[in-house]
Design a protein around this nucleic acid. Structure first.
Length: 492
RNA sequence: GUCCCCAUCGUCUAGUGGCCUAGGACAUCGCCCUUUCACGGCGACGACAGGGGUUCGACUCCCCUUGGGGACGCCA
């Protein structure tokens, strides 16, 4: 029975490219995208770039890159023309004129010839009388003669929308019914004296012409909505469904800003969080299922998502939970995906260049299997596997100092161990473990202590997966070589 | 100042009048596992902002207060 409705679902994400994609914007985009995908509708990207001073093409590019990184592909957008374009607001100017004319002709809007000075004095007077300033409506009753004569004089004018008496009701999916008394609005400007149109007018035209069925956006737009509703009605357009999502705040409950650390999604990308996790986390910020499920793949989100389950309270961004989810996602990545992320890391760190050889890929897969769950961010991949790909190990000063400066010198025992290893017919875990533990016993030290020394020698760091498994994967040659090198280096 | 939104553990939330001595997840803290680092297992701590109503009965409905956020441009 809902068939018609479902096939007609069209939503949009309409960022203004005045900065990078903010986590709040990303979540809005995600909710729109999920809603569209859930209902088999269309997701449209529209760039609101009419603020020449603050908008830039670079920012647009960044936003597009971030959205793609998150995996949110759009059906129509600046780079994907559809029948409702253009999708850059700056290129849509020609569309607005006609609707301004229409409103003017129907007397639902009027030209206002008041000068900036007149307006300013109205404003100061209102202030001195402690009155809420609203445009007086001085020009709302000009006669045709007056208008024509002003036009002939080429006096600049703006176009204002007549606000009807009464009240305007916003039925918000998330918040329910919200009523506004129309008297709180003045006849606001919809066309500037430059001839350009104002945001509140442009969104309405754009959304209506693009056949947007659901407007899902931040709740900072709630107070704009009644004005927009009045416009929809003046223009005879049917209303979309509105859903206003709460904002994302910083840890102190204040509006999220640079002070709170990362606010743009590319910072999380640069930080090494997996996009699968970022999307999962963002979804959980303000949306939930009644079974309190936490872990979702994108497809699960699409299936489970609904506007009704979006909560109305603002959320505070919690990086710890994001990191936890990032690890949870890593655990379930398949071999290819893990390999993909690892190759990216290794390449950008300069350990490999170009494509990996067959042997390298085999080594990589084994290393990743060995590493297991020890990964929260892409950077952890490098930490865990770098020494498999290094030709030579560089030992940081503090490590050398900690393990080789005072007390028991391990060089002698390392020398013995390496000799025994070389003589091994079967270079396998059990035999190696025997050697190491035997030597530890001989020395009267804990075997774990000796194991840690070997770990440091082979990896140049204090952490790695199980040492005997690491040795096996490293292979006899590299193992022997690295031990010999350190003995030689420090022995002199 | 005017208007609007919001209010459950530190954080994200479940809860739609009796199922709630309020459930889950992250974080924190213990213990266990352990070869470092992670993972994992078990457990602990921990919330209905306050005050009035309505009701046989309120976390749930209404009002007020308080606190937080937002909007009030010829910006988007």
């Amino acid at each position: 029975m809902e068939k018609n409705k479902i096939t007609d679902i069209r939503v949009r994400f309409a960022p203004s490219p005045t900065g990078h994609l903010h986590v709040g914007g990303a979540r809005t985009a995600l909710f729109n995208w999920l809603f569209a995908r859930h209902h088999n509708g269309k997701f449209i990207l529209r760039i609101e770039d009419t603020d020449e001073e603050r908008s830039s093409a670079e920012n647009t590019g960044e936003i597009i890159r971030s959205l793609k990184w998150l995996g949110l592909e759009w059906d129509e957008g600046p780079d994907k023309p559809g029948e409702y374009g253009p999708y850059l607001q700056s290129e849509r100017n020609f569309l607005y004129k006609k609707y301004i004319e229409k409103l003017l002709a129907e007397d639902k809007a009027y030209r206002c010839f008041c000068t900036q000075e007149e307006l300013a004095s109205e404003k100061t007077r209102a202030e001195s009388e402690k009155r809420q300033y609203r445009y007086s409506g001085k020009c709302s009753h000009l006669t045709d003669e007056e208008i024509n004569s002003f036009l002939e004089q080429k006096r600049p004018y703006v176009v204002r929308l007549r606000i009807p008496k009464g009240e305007t009701v916003l039925n918000d999916v998330i918040r329910g019914r919200i009523e506004f008394k129309n008297e709180i609005f003045d006849d606001f400007i919809i066309q500037k004296s430059s001839g350009g149109v104002v945001y509140n007018f442009a969104v309405v035209i754009d959304d209506a012409l693009m056949n947007i069925s659901h407007v899902i956006r931040g709740d900072d737009h709630i107070s704009n909505t009644p004005k927009q509703i009045i416009m929809y009605e003046a223009l005879g357009f049917s209303l979309p469904v509105f859903a206003h999502v709460s904002m994302i705040l910083g840890g102190d409950g204040k509006r999220l800003s640079k002070r709170h650390g990362a606010v743009s999604v590319d910072q999380y990308r640069d930080d090494g969080l997996f996009p699968e996790a970022v999307v999962n986390y963002l979804a959980l910020l303000g949306w939930s299922t009644s079974d309190s499920r936490q872990f979702f793949h994108l497809n699960d989100l699409i299936k489970a998502f609904s506007l009704e389950n979006i909560s109305s309270n603002p959320a505070i961004f919690d990086i710890k939970k994001l990191e936890w989810l990032s690890c949870e996602h890593w655990k379930l990545f398949d071999r290819d995906l893990k390999r993909k992320y690892a190759v990216e890391c290794l390449t950008s760190a300069g350990f490999v260049s170009g494509g990996l050889s067959k042997d390298e890929i085999e080594l990589l897969d084994k290393a990743l299997a060995l590493v297991g769950d020890r990964i929260k961010k892409t950077g952890d991949i490098l930490i865990q596997i770098n020494f498999f790909f290094k030709k030579e190990i560089n030992y940081p000063e503090n490590i050398l100092k900690k393990y080789f400066s005072s007390g028991t010198s391990f060089l002698e025992v390392l020398d013995k161990i390496v000799n025994s290893m070389e003589q091994l017919e079967n270079f396998n875990e059990i035999e190696i473990e025997k050697i190491v533990k035997g030597q530890a016993a001989l020395l009267g030290i804990k075997d774990v202590k000796l194991m840690q020394v070997i770990r440091v020698v082979l990896t140049g760091q204090e952490i790695s997966a199980g040492i005997f498994e690491t040795i096996m994967l490293l292979g006899k040659n590299k193992t022997v070589e690295r031990i010999k090198n350190i003995v030689r280096k420090l022995g002199s």
